[in-house]
Amino acid sequence: MNIKDLSDEILFTPGHTACAGCGAPPIVRNIMKIFGKDTIIYTPANCLLVFGGTYPYLAWKVPYFHEAFENTGACISGVARALRKQGKKTLVVGIAGDGGTYDIGIQALSGAAERNEDVIYICYDNEAYMNTGIQRSGSTPYGAATTTTPAGTKIPGKLDHKKDMAEIMRAHEVPYVATMSIAHQRDFLEKAKKARDVEGFRYLHIISPCPTGWRFDPSLTIEMSRKAVDSGMWTLFEAEYGEITNIYKPKKKIPVKEYLMGQGRFRHFTPEMVEELQRWVDHKWKRIYGEEP
């Protein structure tokens, strides 16, 4: 599938109030072109909740629902079961951020996956709690400065590495898990299409660079998605029932340093910190591709 195959119909309208250069709206708008009108959207607390709708206005053109922060898995389960009872084939989709997925929402997510609910769960991952002003999450990479892991004189940013959420979901052996980057258009669209067509629990994990929180020029959002993949910081794969069926290997692997440069959240990095992050990436690379980077 190619972007030229996408329709012009917009189900997430302009006029939304995301920051200029936000990574999330193109993800949402384009994925909705694949999912189509017969879709119900749930968002927990996140930026998308606010910029996609502030009462009485809404960017969504499909039924839209919000309850709370930590329960996306349960909320989409409830909608899906009610619709099944009504004999409807509507797609039920939850779109949570990384905080709502890795941290506070992991329990409800795991429960829904274990029950193999017939839903799509999307994590748009901008690697911190951006909605509330850039606080660290379980997804924040090692060393990154956030407002709760500031680059202090004693402690230089976040001390812990990013959690591998997609692997946790793969371990649930659900019908479909995919990691995505919008910079990889064809891959992105194919995975969205596959997620739409598979039955049962589907987990899509999409990198969503945040110019405000990562501190880079808003024109570079797509570039950041691309470099995240090329450096190995972000890995594109698909898994069905726990088995990896497809891994994208960057044609040219770039040093992690090239990805870090240009992002204010890594500006304080010492050579040792760069090395530590490179070590983490290399280890992951070896685990995924079975070879030395």
Binding site: I40, Y42, F65, E67, A68, E70, N71, G73, A74, C75, I76, S77, G78, V79, R81, A82, L83, K85, Q86, Q107, A108, G111
Partner: peptide
Amino acid sequence: HSAMSACIAAQAAGA
């Protein structure tokens, strides 16, 4: 927590 969340969702979907 999920029990109530799912009931709210299902009720909102008309059940």
